[in-house]
Amino acid sequence: MGIPVDAVDFFAELELNNDRGWWTANQERWRRVVRDPMQRLCDELADEFGDAKLFRPHRDVRFSADKSPYKTHQGAVVLTSPGVGYYVQVSSQGLLTGGGWYQPVPEQIAAYRDAVLDDDSGSQLASIAAQLEGEGVELVGERLKTAPRGVDPGHPRIELLRHKTLLASVEHAIPDWLETDELAAQVADQWRTYRPLLEWLDARLSR
């Protein structure tokens, strides 16, 4: 059993009705078509990848101009090291899988840049990135607009050096297998594609 397409519809409706009254009226639907199926998916993936954390549906609005109380997606993450992990999400856009470095601290940013500047580890990351992009995986993340301080803008790995986070992701929309027992196998296959990137990040950012 996968994730019902009604989960996609749920978030499309939530985007138009992001208030407590609508949420209260639809909370049992959220449990049935979003939370419980996502938990089942994570449970099926746990033996190979580890235990996942499902994110809470409520937004932290304390420091945001947007006071909408509820997130318009449901995500889950399996951490492999601090700030690095596998990710899966359902929203009004459908299913998204991802993996990488999403929660940086200054020490990690410095370690990441040193590793990318190193010819051996930097070339390894460039090769991983090229392999992922060749398989239709998008590399995203927070990036500097220019070169990091002290780095030659003409450096052959400048695009990687500009990253302050680095994530591989694929938007699957509403695939034929979303609602089926095949869901866990499909997500697992995608996460395995991301594994070389996570292993590179784990080895260099978690020291």
Rank of each mutant, 00 (worst) to 15 (best):
S64D: 11
F49Q: 09
S92F: 00
G2I: 13
E13W: 04
D152Q: 02
L14M: 10
T146Y: 07
L79H: 14
E142S: 09
G2M: 12
T180R: 06
P175F: 04
R195M: 02
R204W: 00
L166M: 06
H163W: 05
V33A: 03
A76R: 06
L54W: 05
L96G: 12
L167K: 11
G75D: 03
E159L: 13
G134P: 07
D6G: 00
A173I: 03
E135D: 14
A126F: 01
W101Y: 11
R149Q: 14
G98E: 12
L144W: 00
A46R: 14
Q131V: 15
P106I: 14
A130S: 11
R192K: 11
R20Q: 04
A110L: 10
G141N: 07
W30I: 06
A25D: 03
S169L: 14
R56M: 06
I174P: 08
D47L: 12
L197M: 03
G98K: 11
E159V: 06
R56I: 02
L54Y: 01
S68Y: 07
S64C: 00
N18W: 00
G134K: 09
A76H: 02
V8Q: 01
D19R: 04
E28D: 13
D43R: 14
S91E: 07
P153C: 03
L132P: 03
R40L: 05
V84K: 00
W200F: 11
G136K: 04
K71G: 06
L45G: 13
F55E: 12
L41C: 04
S92V: 08
E159C: 01
H73D: 15
D60T: 04
R20D: 08
P196D: 03
D19E: 08
L79G: 10
G75Y: 04
F11N: 03
D47Y: 03
A129L: 01
P106M: 12
L167H: 05
S91I: 05
A126N: 05
G99I: 08
A130H: 06
Y194S: 02
L16P: 04
R143M: 15
E142A: 11
K145E: 11
P196I: 00
M38S: 11
Y194R: 01
F49A: 09
A184Q: 09
S127L: 09
P37A: 10
E107D: 14
L54S: 01
V151F: 12
V140T: 15
L16F: 07
T72I: 02
A46T: 15
L201S: 08
S123C: 10
Y87N: 08
P156T: 09
Q108T: 07
W200N: 14
T146M: 11
G94W: 11
S91W: 05
P4A: 09
Q103S: 13
L16G: 04
E171Q: 15
L183I: 12
I3T: 13
D9Y: 05
P37Y: 07
K164R: 15
H155C: 05
Y102C: 14
Y112M: 05
M1P: 14
T72M: 00
D47R: 12
T165V: 13
S68Q: 05
A12Q: 07
V140L: 12
L166T: 06
Q103V: 13
L95I: 07
G150Q: 07
L160Y: 06
V77P: 11
A7F: 03
Y194A: 11
V187C: 09
N17R: 03
H172W: 10
E13D: 09
R29S: 02
L205N: 03
